[in-house]
Nucleic acid binder design. Structure first.
Lengths: 137, 137
DNA sequence: AAAATATTTGCAATGCAATTGCATTTTTAT
DNA sequence: ATAAAAATGCAATTGCATTGCAAATATTTT
C-alpha cells in the first residue's frame, strides 16, 4: 500500500525514502518558502547535506522550485502545477520584511516586458518586498 | 582645477581619493554592471577590501546602485539619474546567460503588480534572463 | 607649522551558505 | 546470494560578504 505522500514522490520519479517523505511532509505543513537551514532545524538531528541533496532531487524532478528572494539564501517551495519534467512557475514571489517569510503568489503572473531590440528572453524573476497580510500594522 | 571625475564624486559628497577616481573611471568605461571581483581584477593589485568599501561609499551616496541579478554575486552599476541622496532606479536588469554580463535597462520600468489583499509593497526587483543583443545567434 | 583629529586604506580574520569527495550503508537488480 | 546502483553521512572546500584593528594619509585646530 502506498500513501499519498509516497504517491506524490513516485509521480515525480523520486524513490520514497524516509528522509524524502519527512522533508516533503514538512514542506506541505508550511505554506511559505523555506531555506535549507529552516528545514534542517525542523529535521534535527538529520544531516544537513542529505536534506540539501533531497531538495536538489526534488527540484530536479519538478516537485519543488528554487526561489531567489534577494536574501542571498536559497528558498524552496512546492510546485503547484509544474510538470514533473519542466518548471513553469512564472509567478511572483513576495518577501515580507517583517516576518522574513517568503511566499509564492501563484495567481500573480509576471506581466510581459518590452525588451530592447535584440534581447531575447528566456526567464524572469520578480521579487516583491513589503509587508504581508499578517504583518500589516 | 577639478576634473569631471572629481566633480562627479564631490557632487555626491564623496571625497575624491585616488582609489575612488580609479574605480569610478573603470565603471564609466564599462557599460554593464560589475561584480567586486571584476573590478578587483581590473584594479590589481589594489586591495579588495578597499574597493569593496569604495563601492559601498558610492552606493550610500547615490552614485551607484547595487544589483541582485540572481547569480548570488552583488553587481554594481552607475546610477543614471538617482538623487545624490535617494535611489530611484526601478528599472529592470537583464542577465545574459551567454556572456554573463548584467545590464541595466533604464527605459524598461517594472509594471505595476496586483498583490493579494493585505499585502503592502515597498520595493520590487525584476531580473530578466536570456541572450543580449550581442549574443544573439 | 605643529599638534590633534578624522578619514581612508590594507591586512587578517570571521561568518555564512552552497557544494563536492569519498567511504559507508541501504536498496535494487541479476 | 551476489553484484550493481543509489542514498546517506561526515569531512572538507569554496566563494563571497563583512568586520576589527592598526598603519597611513588627509584635514582641522591651535
Amino acid at each position: 500500500m502506498t500513501t499519498l505522500l509516497e504517491q506524490r514522490l513516485t509521480d515525480h520519479r523520486i524513490k520514497p525514502t524516509a528522509m524524502r517523505l519527512l522533508v516533503l511532509e514538512y514542506l506541505l505543513s508550511r505554506q511559505s518558502a523555506l531555506g535549507l537551514s529552516d528545514i534542517e532545524k525542523a529535521m534535527a538531528p538529520a544531516d544537513r547535506i542529505t536534506i540539501y541533496r533531497t531538495l536538489k532531487t526534488f527540484e530536479q524532478n519538478g516537485l519543488v522550485h528554487l526561489i531567489d528572494d534577494g536574501t542571498g539564501v536559497h528558498k524552496y517551495a512546492l510546485c503547484d502545477n509544474c510538470d514533473p519534467a519542466e518548471h513553469h512557475d512564472t509567478h511572483v514571489h513576495f518577501y515580507c520584511t517583517v516576518c522574513k517569510e517568503t511566499y509564492c503568489l501563484p495567481d500573480t503572473k509576471i506581466p510581459d516586458i518590452g525588451l530592447p531590440a535584440g534581447f531575447i528572453l528566456s526567464e524572469m524573476n520578480l521579487i516583491v518586498k513589503g509587508h504581508c497580510d499578517k504583518c500589516r500594522l
